[in-house]
Amino acid sequence: MNLIVSAIGQGLLWALLGLGLYLTFRILDFCDMTVEGTFPLGAATAVTAITHGVNPFIATLLAVVAGMVAGLVTGLLYTKGKIPSLLAGILTMTAIYSVNLRIMGKSNISLLGQPTLFNGALHNLPQYFDSVTLGLVVIAIVTVLMILFLATDYGQAFIATGDNPTMAKSLGIHTDKMVIVGLMISNGMVGLCGALIAQNNGYADINMGIGTIVIALASIIIGEVAFGELTLNQRLVAVTLGSIIYRIILLAVLQLGFSANDLNLISSVVLAICMMIPQFEKQLNIKKPILKGVRPHE
């Protein structure tokens, strides 16, 4: 029972990563590798700030801002620098690794004995219910904000940019700006995710970003496979459910005797199988944004 509650809590917190990537990967058709750097960046920023006496809430906001800056860098490399999206993301991600070491000063910082968002008001909840509660609140707010945003004139132009950039431009939509804004929002969310996961785990580690893009894709795809044809708003909810299902699958795999060290291997295998089955690939359309990611921006 405890394990299931823990998996749901983890799924809710990690869903932020999936939702962030949904904006770029699915809506903008942009395969953004930056997230592999932004996730630990958010963690490093929040944890370092907290250990320097910053209020955990402010520290978490700082992580969001740091993530947005990372998104801005990738966006500028892609739109102004004409660097293919995949490479632009990899460049930022690689650079962030050094930035993270600078921020933290070492490769691992513990939050032992420090205040976090989880041991404030949530402290009196039974084990693991703190992450479920905070996860639910954050995901509800973020999902509602995304739904509202996408239903505005600005949000519709954002969707059109990813759907058909030629048409968007011919209607006067500044597509470069849209891509930059999308990358900033997306990476801000991923930074937030990193900050929350670090506070939940009680530490930040320089290597905690490895595999995040696969985890994010997995929650998006599991949500799509599990729930089929959905409206855009329903799809956003499906990402969170996908993230929870993914955590439950991992739990089951761990029960089979695999260790936590095998998680990245398992995640990759699951995603690779999804991409290799033609019916899946046709329905899921994973390769298109990735292939597009190796071409420069016109």
């Binding site: 945003f149 505005t152 004139d153 600005y154 949000g155 519709q156 132009a157 209607l171 006067g172």
Partner: peptide, 9 residues
């Protein structure tokens, strides 16, 4: 050709 704002479509 117009500015698009954060107002509901």
């Amino acid at each position: 050709g117009e500015h698009r704002y954060l107002i509901f479509r």
